[in-house]
Amino acid sequence: MTLPWEALLLVTAWGTMVGVDLVSVPQALFARPVVAGFIAGVMLGEPVVGLQVGLILELFAFDTLAIGSARYPDLGSATIPAVVAAALLGPGDGSIGLGVALGLVLGQIGGVSLEALRRWNGRTIQQVESMLQDGAPRLLGRLQWMGVGRDALRSAILVVVGLGLAGTMPGLPPVIIAAPEITWVAIAGSGLAGSIGLLRGVARGSHWRWFVLGTGAGLLLTGGLG
């Protein structure tokens, strides 16, 4: 499968918007992997692939808390190249797992890029420190929008680098692309990440009972206990 330039431009723009949404503006949950992946999949004409990759990465997102000065992965932007990789790899049994692996690696790189962005913002603020101490209303607006611009640049670079890597993945040996075990590892890892994240977050303490109850209901719904 090859992707037209228009589709690549579209997903790059979407990935940039998703990256900016994570921290800068508007924090409207477009950066949730399932949202980012589904929209990217629709843009590529592969909504099911987008959803499958997004669903797995969304479970990994349960294990991250995007708060304060902590380092957390940028899984939203990383989802876009992951979906592109899975779409390019086609219907091989390992394609979803390989896309997820790319997304996880890119997410970590995205986390490092967020730290660099914060330091870049800090250096700019230090340069105008005396003006800020005197009270400079116009400067505040300028700093804000410079921050948005930098975050957009960071996100765009992350997505473009990811798309470049995704483009090389069809060159992998066919025996790897066709390996179902790869997708199974991704599925198991996502289940583990989701469980750990929930038990550490909303299901901590006595709330673990609610989590177990939900899991039982989920197994019943999927017919897994039948």
């Binding site: 289940g191 989590f211 197994l219 719904l221 897994g224």
Partner: peptide
């Protein structure tokens, strides 16, 4: 509520990708 729905979501997600059946249940 989030803990219950999160619990529901894990087997459903794993089954949606891996297919329904005993293997996914054991994995969950």
């Amino acid at each position: 509520l989030a803990a219950v729905l999160g619990g529901v979501a894990i087997p459903m997600t794993l089954a949606a990708i891996g297919g329904q059946g005993r293997t996914v249940s054991v994995l969950v």
